[in-house]
């Protein structure tokens, strides 16, 4: 498919004997927002964590099948290199508590042992913070602890930390589930703005959120990918009856 950045081929994932994902085949388009939705335990988060190989941190986790990033099998790549190309934002804001706001943004570089000049760092920090619309709020207190920020600001900081590494893909695991509606709206706006430059893949429990911000929507159910189509199509005329039941709230 033209413009595909991530493709999975018969991806299966399990924890021990418990198979979480069953034969997932999906083509995720480049520089678009793709949303994964589905009821709890449907495997969407596991799928997300397979993409940047966080899944394998669990000693019982196993994966079969292939995930290709630009035709390159991610399981043949070095995990650390992969994770620099595929950034991730988590469910709860998790800035590094011992670091300042500035250090948090630049953390990706320091943790990877990349040495930068002060001016380069300043430029990266400002650029990343501007991209997440946080610059104006924190520019006078860059040396404050990151944990002094509000939850919504912390989550935007985490997004900035990821954006600073200039990844090709940003995975977002329910990034607004711990935030209030206003902060959520801000993050959604950001994602809408970021999508021109990055491929965004977002897991969300919130159907409306998937509807609002994504171009493509995937519906997962019991470890299977039941439907993957234009968001508009999924929300106005879903092909699969289960999708219809889920988005209309008739699930059960």
């Amino acid at each position: 498919m033209e413009g595909t950045i991530l493709r999975t081929e018969n991806l299966c994932a399990s924890f021990g004997t418990n198979q979480i994902l069953k034969n997932i085949n999906i083509d995720i388009p480049e520089k678009k927002v793709t949303a994964f939705m589905g009821p709890s335990g449907c495997g969407k988060t596991t799928f997300l964590r397979c993409i940047n190989r966080m899944h394998e941190l669990n000693p019982e986790a196993t994966v079969q099948g292939k995930i290709r990033l630009h035709y390159e099998d991610v399981y043949q790549m070095d995990a650390m290199t992969l994770r620099r190309k595929v950034g991730m934002v988590f469910q709860r804001p998790n800035p590094f508590p011992t670091m300042s706001i500035y250090e948090n943004v630049i953390a990706g570089f320091t943790l990877n042992g990349l040495k930068l000049k002060k001016a380069e760092k300043d430029a990266i920090v400002e650029d990343a913070l501007r991209k997440v619309a946080l610059w104006d709020e924190v520019k006078d207190k860059l040396n404050n602890r990151a944990t002094s920020l509000s939850g919504g600001q912390q989550q935007r900081l985490c997004l900035a930390r990821t954006v600073a590494m200039k990844p090709e893909v940003i995975l977002l695991d329910e990034p607004t589930s711990a935030l209030d509606p206003l902060s959520t709206a801000k993050i959604e706006d950001l994602l809408y703005e970021l999508k021109g430059n990055y491929t965004l893949v977002i897991v969300t429990h919130n159907m409306q959120q998937a509807a609002r911000i994504s171009d493509m929507t995937a519906f997962f159910y019991l470890g299977e990918l039941l439907e993957f189509d234009d968001t508009k199509k999924v929300f106005t005329n879903p092909k699969n009856e289960k999708t219809q039941n889920y988005i209309t709230g008739r699930f059960g």
Binding site: Q208, A211, R212, T231, K232, F235, T236
Partner: peptide, 9 residues
């Protein structure tokens, strides 16, 4: 209109 109603409630 349909899109807006469906996607943005």
């Amino acid at each position: 209109c349909e899109t807006i109603l469906a996607l943005f409630t």
